[in-house]
Amino acid sequence: MTAAALGKTAAAPAQTAAKPLVAATDIVQEYEQPDGKMLRVLDSVNLTFERPSINMLLGPSGCGKSTLLRMLGGVRPWNVATPTSGRVEIDGQACVGPHPDTVMVFQHYANRPDMTVRENVLYPFGFSEWKRRVPPKEATERVDQMLQEVGLADKRDQYPSQLSGGQNQRVALARALVLRPRVLLMDEPFGALDAQTRSNMQDLLCRLHAAHPCVVVFVTHDVTEALLLGDRVIVLSTQPARIIDDFTITERQPRSQQWLMGADVRVMYERVVAHLRASGGRGNMRVTV
């Protein structure tokens, strides 16, 4: 006899909670110094990233932002245990080495000087991991489409030495996004650019993220950049780095200069700066609001 015939409602199947895409749990990182003492860089850091979004990681210089960023992508220094304690997971599985779903972009773009723009963007597909994942025809189609999206289709046959700094950073961003990563880790990618080029790259990142949603974790020293780009802003203290603030911004992209100068943003700006000043360290930050 069915549950309905008995006048009862059958219980719904239990739902299993989805694992966060990226999770860092109780992260501690220490390095041994020449005198044998241990330097603690990160202390009890807990972060989860569950859905596509731009997440800004902000803090004084030298506080451990880049250390944490690399750890999230499975990049491990030679002969050093990272993390010292705690756990990084991607899709609920321990991340103990470079992960195919994560890609990093650095301030100093690693474009091959002996390759054209198109060859640089196509370059990752020559590695065995991506040869298995993406057929050659699809790879070339992706590259040509991405060059269109970053505005470099007309520069495809030029070499990095023939490009400006902003154009070279577009090459690096295209090379990362052409792999369609689920996690994009960015270590001050626009820090060396002039103000106008930096603004253009920020706009481009927002457009590309809308077209290719993923979890972006973006390290910056710039409070303005964090508020302009971030769906979420995470603030670290000086060493040993702890999370001292973590908040979301609901204003949709693109965000205008008028919004940036508004009262609500001023409150967020003062909140971040107050945290950084109260952290008591000697690291630097950049404020351009």
Rank of each mutant, 00 (worst) to 15 (best):
H209M: 08
P83D: 04
D222G: 09
S199T: 09
F125E: 00
D35Y: 13
Q169Y: 07
V121I: 13
V75R: 00
Q93H: 15
V215W: 08
G126W: 03
A3E: 13
K137H: 02
G151C: 11
V22W: 06
P254A: 12
R51C: 01
R282P: 12
G283E: 13
R242Q: 14
V41I: 12
Y123T: 09
S199V: 05
L42T: 04
S128G: 03
V217D: 07
D245V: 00
Y269K: 09
Q148E: 14
R132Q: 15
V28I: 05
Q33I: 06
A174T: 07
P52H: 08
H209W: 15
M104V: 12
V88A: 07
E138V: 13
A14V: 14
G92C: 08
E129M: 06
G92L: 05
L72D: 04
Q148C: 08
A172M: 04
S164N: 10
F49W: 01
S279G: 14
L68E: 07
D91L: 07
R266N: 10
R198H: 01
M285G: 05
P124E: 05
D157W: 13
A17C: 05
I244S: 01
R51I: 02
L57G: 05
A210Q: 15
Q158W: 13
N120S: 12
R175S: 03
M268G: 00
P135A: 12
M115S: 14
R252Q: 15
V88W: 07
E251M: 11
D231S: 09
A17I: 11
M261S: 12
E32F: 08
V171I: 14
V272E: 01
A172T: 03
D264C: 02
L276K: 01
L39F: 09
I234H: 00
E149V: 02
G166P: 11
L57I: 06
L58T: 07
D194W: 04
V150R: 08
F106C: 03
R118F: 10
Q145C: 00
T48C: 10
V287N: 14
R277N: 13
K131P: 00
L72E: 10
S128Q: 14
L260Q: 10
G230N: 06
L179P: 11
L236E: 03
E149Y: 02
L177I: 13
R170C: 10
P60F: 00
R170A: 11
E149S: 09
A24K: 00
C95M: 04
